[in-house]
């Protein structure tokens, strides 16, 4: 028994001798920042609905919209994020986010195929609101870069999920599923806009 703490002592001594605390960069906060950024869009159903809608709409419109929209969204979202970080006042953020679900969801449920430039403008406009909301959270993150990588990655994966749903339109039953998802997204938007959700 008297020697039971000996191994622990050695471990403590070795840890004290390890110079890891003196490195120029540390991983402190990196994983936490990444995880909190990655989960941030997933906790807000208003965000999730809109991201998935972008993917479905891209798939509905076919090429090149299927890759243009998921590329435009994060880029313009970043510009919205910059406005949020710099504290530039932008009215109607929450209604704008809710409206994005209503408009994009309605386009899908009604099977409206706007020209690419119209779709790009719509998506870019709504991306500003989403980016602004995320950007305002960025200064509080443990590691802002890890946080931003996490949430951009999460956003992209939601787009991919939407594209996967949109790709179902190749089958008759898939069309129903995709349009029903669009309807659900639009209803979610209405719920957020009216304060029901």
């Amino acid at each position: 028994m008297p020697n039971s703490h000996k191994p622990l002592g050695w471990v403590v001594a070795l840890l004290l001798l390890t110079p890891s605390t003196a490195w120029a960069h540390t991983a402190t906060g990196t994983v936490d920042g990444f995880l909190s950024g990655f989960t941030h869009p997933l906790y807000g159903w208003d965000h999730v609905a809109a991201m998935i809608a972008v993917g479905i709409l891209g798939a509905f419109l076919g090429r090149p919209a299927i890759w243009v929209l998921p590329m435009v969204f994060p880029l313009v979202m970043a510009l919205g994020g910059v406005l949020g970080i710099l504290g530039v006042p932008l009215p109607g953020i929450e209604p704008g986010i809710a409206l994005s679900s209503i408009v994009l969801g309605s386009l899908i449920v009604l099977a409206i195929r706007p020209p690419l430039w119209v779709a790009v403008i719509l998506v870019a406009m709504f991306a500003i609101f989403h980016g602004y909301a995320h950007g305002a959270e960025l200064p509080n993150a443990a590691n802002p870069l890890a946080y931003s990588v996490g949430f951009v990655l999460s956003t992209g994966m939601l787009h991919l999920f939407g594209i996967a749903i949109g790709e179902l339109i190749r089958w008759p039953w898939g069309k129903v599923v995709a349009r029903a998802t669009g309807g659900l997204i639009a209803l979610t938007g209405v719920g957020f806009l009216t304060g029901v959700l």
Partner: peptide
């Protein structure tokens, strides 16, 4: 590849602004 490029641009732009 281009979509991942867009994600990198978005992440770096926001942290640059910060």
């Amino acid at each position: 590849v281009r979509v991942i490029g867009a994600w990198i641009a978005a992440s770096s732009l926001m942290v640059l602004a910060l």
